[in-house]
Amino acid sequence: MKTLVIADHDNGILKPETSKTINAAVKLGNAIDVLVLGENISEMANQVASINGVATVLVADNAIYGHQLAENTADLVLSLAGDYSHIVASATTTGKNFMPRVAALLDVAQISEIIDVVDAETFKRPIYAGNAIATVKSLDSKKVITVRASSFDLQTEQAAATVSALDSTFDNHLSQFVSVEQTESERPELTAAEVVISGGRGMQNGENFALLNGIADKLGAAIGASRAAVDAGFVANDMQVGQTGKIVAPNLYIAVGISGAIQHLAGMKDSKVIVAINKDPDAPIFQVADYGLVADLFEVLPQLENAL
């Protein structure tokens, strides 16, 4: 049998999560087809064709898929599902939106946010905010799986695979796109950044988050926040790193004025190197940090900016 991967993109720009999800799909051992759906996506389809391990790229280029509405996406995937034993997508907000719909329509369970492939039907996934790792075996004939992309590597490139156009259209009129508001930022997206610097309650207010800007500029970092900082109204919710926010795994994570609540650790503890700056030497964040600096953040942040 074959595996179908659904590519993830943002307005026609392919997300790195797609390559990482294909990396996970390769571990299933089947031939891999990738569905790319959206509007004006031919260039992106060619990019997908060069990701190692892809046999065929299926392209559904139509205005009705332009915003990847869950209802239309699920019906399209369902129409292709017959040929595949595994249907796989990234656990991004797009994948999380339409994949359970696909699973329910196929009358199968979904295995969410896998971090490891044990074999073609057994997977590891975090539960309880990552405080436990469940090994789960699917008993269904078809497996519907979402992948936590940060747990997998980018795939290498290959000579371009076949690209084939789909002309079936599904428009069920249950939902309609109204508008999108992109967060305007010169910085990389949190989940894609190689370096993340986050502030917590210790930042004391929203204005003080500006202290992180200079460091972020020098490191090309995204800026995040703990739930405590978001709840206190310092910064917007979309900056939240944690169980109920974004899950990140950058090469370098710098936690500033963050105590290290379970909820926050769940969102960043898979980072390669963790730095913690906190004036409380007993803060739990130091237990997961590779490098801890016990100091007043208002003193050391300007020093750090200058030293970089």
């Binding site: 436990a132 790792i133 090994t135 963790i274 997961v288």
Partner: peptide, 17 residues
């Protein structure tokens, strides 16, 4: 689905101050 097992996540080894 069948829950095969549940384990503790891999602990990070302690760093330095």
């Amino acid at each position: 689905t069948q829950l095969v097992s549940v384990s503790e996540p891999v602990k990070r080894s302690g760093g330095i101050i």
